[in-house]
Design a protein around this nucleic acid. Structure first.
Length: 940
RNA sequence: GGGCGAUUAGCUCAGUUGGUUAGAGCGCUGCCUUGACAUGGCAGAGGUCACUGGUUCGAAUCCAGUAUCGCCCACCA
């Protein structure tokens, strides 16, 4: 690079506003500019002497792209991270990516197949190399998307669950648990995916309601005394039946127990047993028992001492344990053949439709088989107890609190955790077998050999299986902070950042991940992984539907940031559909919802939308209109800032403290806003925090304050007041930007940079500036401002309701003013005239007849607008009538309340006093309005 | 079958320990290109707080029940 080029590059990285302020807010340039600036300046690194604050990113799958759920959660995490960083905490956002065993294997396998290759052409090592290659090329999609969103993570600490040190933690954990006898291996019935050919966890099985069939089959009694009829949804499994069960108290079959029946198609005789499991009310009260292919039957078989007969191969084809005629058929062919044969033999009694629950794998969508294999398990008795204790004791707190019920329920019903998977990509199980099948567990083959004094003549073979992905994720909290290596624990801040402050995640992984982290971190470190768990709602589409590719209703957060043309959106939504026939419908729906595609809202608007929608514990319907509204809000902020900067200029402002009422009022409102935002964020009420900021910035700062400040900024205004007003403008904007920055980091940084010189701000970035603290509330100034707003509002309201030309300045007469009112009219005359568009204000006495005026009550005062014949008396009468009606209704309410003796006797004095005051006010208004109505009626 | 949660304006949602005439955004109506902003301003209309009963001086709020909807968990062949 040339010297000039270097200078340019350096200049481009110097913080400062990107350009002059355009008339409308344009997020793209701003966002692209600031992220690299922050990152390269090291803004996101932890540090300082402040109290530690840390957040773990639930590591997204390396195969993943950012979806709305991520974007939502990451926004909330980043908001908390930025807030605490600005509050001076030593703030760590620990990010990283999960290796995602099955998902990654599927992606890479598909890639190989797309190239015309086959997965089976690769050896284990070759395949793993291939996956790493894929990871290096494509594995950072999601982290780059996180940057687009503004996620202020310390990327230098980014981890991958297959990193060496994290793998070391996995091995260490496995070995220690094995040594503690908390890990064992054995033959068990597991959920088996015959297509992926691996065990999967209960949690990865999705139960679908599907229409199936129920077949009734006759099993002849061996003694020739008739037969029994069993019902089944899976007739092919009869090939593996070991017995027939009836209820012990069922009189119909009392004589049968202990006898045998002929198992059709197999030539086997099987006994009839009595077992409580059988429901005599259902079907015939006889159940065929197939221990190798059904979880319940497994239990029954075990109770009666039967050896399970496995009739399937790993791909769910009938194996050699079944009669030869069926061997080699897959499970569905076998079913058809069995039914056909039963029918031919007259053993099929009935076939009828049956609503049933079909287990399918959440990845493959295939029907899952209960399948008998050797697997590794973690015992959950003690760990489960520990996990429960950590939450019951309050060491880990759920927010919202009711999630503790879900957690309790699950922790109370734990089964041992099957951790082995028959996959290639993942942490290999650190267990070795000798030629006799003895198991040795160790940190490495070398360690095993040394511990057992094996010479080179001993052949050891490592277990081919890998650990399920959640095993390594469950160590995420302590392994990313250096565990188990003492040196790394020191340098990574193990003691400083653990327990982390809060985990923000969805309810769907409470069991997969949250519970297991609590158990594992608790067991190995004695600490909890996090002090709080904030459970977010689920982002749904406008109509409340879950977003899914197959439904074609997915919104991509990046499309909301950058915008997308309709055609591109249609193409995206209809590409690679599992059911292409849905394409038409999806296209129609998409055209209907986004006739012009999606405009570019920018990351800040998207973030603010997420925050504003983040109520507690409820699904979130994502409505584009909200996003548009908040983009408009940021445009409002942008233009207000443009106005402020117009008056503030680029030079350092003289130090001055404005003590006029308007400045005191806006500072007071700002203080209240700070308090409200603080309180809301402490409770994770992002929605309330967002609402408070929106309200303050738009409806107080823009709608009122800037308007009220304008006269003081005019060229002919008092120079001292103008100076102090300029300063207040800049200071209030500065504080507002700080408050807003955790929500909308880009636009606030861009604007704030322009205030650095005028306010002589020392910090380089808003991102690392100190967060504001609430000052005192100024009740006197607030009362003045409220009065002012009431008077202006009264005039405006009367004027509009009477259809008086809004642009035309008119005179105002005021009656029944108190001393306070008169003083205020004097102080605020200019402001009132300007904002209410008045040419004059005159305080007149009671004698002035109001018959020729529109009358607007304002507290005790009467605001009179001379009509001078421009307004229909009828219209004014109608207006007054409406107001009178309203006042009367209010009066009746209050009168009723106060007439109730028990109310007066029992309610707190303050409440009663308030009601009495209201009574007086309503009475006054009603009387005034009646008088005026009477006056006008006399004129008509 | 068990558990959790919802039901407030046309739509999406707030509504603190029970206490003004139940609020906001979007949408809607009317007027307005006022030198920050039409991605805007000003002023409006719009609600039997799902239903029934109870507690209370007072209930959107607390309690019980009913209805509808959603989600999670569960082995009925």
């Amino acid at each position: 690079m040339s010297r000039a080029g270097q200078a340019r590059a350096k200049a481009a990285l110097r913080p400062g506003p990107t350009h002059r302020m355009e008339k409308t807010y344009q997020p793209e340039a701003i966002e692209n500019h600031w992220y690299p600036q922050w990152e390269q300046a090291g803004c996101f690194k932890p540090g300082g002497e402040g109290r530690p604050y840390s957040v773990l990113l639930p590591p997204p799958n390396v195969t993943g792209t950012l979806h709305m759920g991520h974007a939502f959660q990451h926004t909330l995490m980043d908001c908390m991270i930025r807030l605490h960083r600005m509050k001076g905490c030593d703030t760590l956002w620990q990010v990283g990516v999960d290796h995602a065993g099955i998902a990654t294997e599927m992606v890479v396998t598909r890639q190989i197949e797309a190239e015309g290759g086959r997965r089976d052409d690769y050896t284990r090592e070759q395949f793993i190399d291939r996956v790493w290659k894929w990871k290096h090329e494509s594995g950072s999609t999601i982290t780059n998307q996180m940057r687009r969103l503004g996620a202020s993570a310390d990327w230098s600490r980014e981890r991958f669950t297959m990193d060496d040190d994290l793998s070391e933690a996995v091995v260490e954990t496995f070995v220690r648990l094995f040594e503690e006898r908390k890990i064992y291996r054995g033959p068990r019935l597991v959920n088996w995916d015959p297509v992926l050919q691996t065990a999967i966890s209960d949690l990865e099985v999705v139960n679908h309601d599907e229409q199936g069939k129920l077949w009734s089959i006759r099993y002849p009694r061996s003694d020739g005394q008739g037969d029994v009829v069993v019902a089944t949804t899976r007739p092919e499994t009869l090939l593996g039946d070991v017995c027939v069960a009836v209820h012990p108290d069922d009189p119909r079959y009392a004589d049968l127990v202990g006898k045998t029946v002929q198992l059709p198609l197999t030539g086997r005789e099987i006994p009839v047993v009595a077992d409580e499991y059988v429901d005599p009310e259902f079907g015939t009260g006889c159940v065929k028992i197939t221990p190798a292919h059904d979880f319940n039957d497994w239990e029954v078989g075990a109770r009666h001492g039967f050896e399970p007969i496995n009739i399937f191969t790993a791909t769910a084809q009938v194996n050699q344990n079944a009669p030869e005629a069926y061997q080699g058929l897959d499970r569905f062919e076998a079913r058809a053949r069995v039914i056909e044969d039963l029918q031919r033999q007259g053993l099929l009694v009935e076939e009828k439709p049956h609503a049933m629950v079909v287990p399918r794998g959440d990845r493959s969508g295939q029907i899952i088989e209960p399948y008998l294999t050797d697997q590794w398990f973690v015992k959950m008795d003690e760990l489960g107890k520990l996990g429960l204790e950590k939450v019951e004791s309050g060491e880990v707190e759920f927010v919202p609190g009711n999630w503790i019920n879900t957690y309790r329920h699950w922790m109370g019903n734990l089964k041992d955790w099957c951790i082995s998977r028959q996959l290639t990509w993942g942490h290999r199980i650190p267990a070795w077998y000798d030629t006799d099948g003895n198991i040795y567990v160790g940190r490495s083959e070398q360690e095993v050999r040394q511990a057992n004094d094996f010479g080179p003549e001993t052949v050891l073979k490592q277990d081919p299986d890998v650990l399920e992905t959640w095993f390594s994720s469950s160590l995420w909290a302590h392994s990313t902070l250096g565990w188990p290596d003492p040196q790394r624990m020191h340098s990574d801040g193990f003691n400083r950042y653990l327990p982390t402050s809060v985990l923000i995640t969805g309810f769907d992984i409470i069991f997969f991940w949250v519970a297991r982290m609590i158990m594992m971190t608790g067991h190995f470190t004695g600490k909890v992984p996090f002090e709080q768990v904030y459970i977010t709602g689920l982002i749904r589409d406008r109509d409340g539907q879950k977003m899914s590719k197959s439904k074609g209703n997915v919104l991509d957060p990046i499309d909301l940031i950058d915008g997308i043309e309709l055609d591109a959106l249609l193409a995206k939504r209809t590409a690679a559909l599992m059911q292409p026939r849905l394409a038409k419908q999806i296209e129609k729906h998409t055209r209907d919802e986004f006739p012009d595609g999606i405009p570019a809202f920018g990351a800040d608007a998207l973030r603010f939308t997420f925050a504003a929608l983040a109520g507690h514990g409820r699904d979130i319907k994502f409505d584009l209109a909200r996003c548009e509204g908040y983009r408009n809000f940021l445009n409002k902020l942008w233009n207000a800032s443009r106005f402020v900067m117009m008056h503030v200029g680029e030079q350092e402002l003289p130090r001055s403290q404005a003590d006029d009422v308007i400045s005191r009022w806006i500072r007071s409102r700002l203080s209240r806003t700070i308090t409200a935002v603080d309180a809301a964020l402490t409770d994770y009420r992002f929605d309330l925090a967002a609402a408070a900021l929106y309200e303050f910035i738009w409806h107080e700062f823009c709608d009122w304050y800037l308007e009220l400040a304008k006269p003081a900024l005019a060229d002919d205004a008092d120079p001292a007041t103008r100076e102090s007003t300029r300063r207040t403008l800049a200071e209030v904007l500065d504080t507002a930007l700080r408050l807003l920055h955790p929500f909308t980091p880009f636009v606030t940084e861009e604007i704030w940079q322009r205030l650095r010189t005028p306010l002589a701000l020392q910090t380089e970035f808003l991102a690392t500036t100190i967060y504001p603290q609430a000052g005192a509330v100024d009740l006197e100034a607030e009362a003045d401002a409220e009065w002012l707003k009431a008077v202006i509002g009264g005039v405006r309201s009367a004027r509009t309701e009477l259809n008086l030309a809004p642009g035309k300045a008119m005179p105002l007469l005021v009656q029944q003013t108190g001393a306070d009112d008169q003083a205020r009219f004097e102080r605020f005359e200019t402001l009132i005239k300007r904002l209410a568009r008045l040419e004059s204000i005159e305080i007149v006495d009671q004698d002035r007849d109001s018959a020729d005026c529109a009358v607007q009550l304002c507290g005790a005062m009467r605001l009179l607008i001379p009509l001078a014949g421009v307004v229909d008396l009828g219209e004014e009468l109608a207006r007054l009538g409406k107001q009178l009606e309203r006042e009367q209704k209010g009066l009746e309410n209050v009168e009723r309340k106060l007439a109730n003796e028990r109310f007066v006797a029992n309610a707190p004095q303050a409440v009663v006093d308030k009601e009495r005051q209201r009574l007086a006010e309503h009475r006054h208004s009603v009387a005034e309005l009646r008088t005026q109505v009477a006056k006008l009626e006399r004129l008509t």
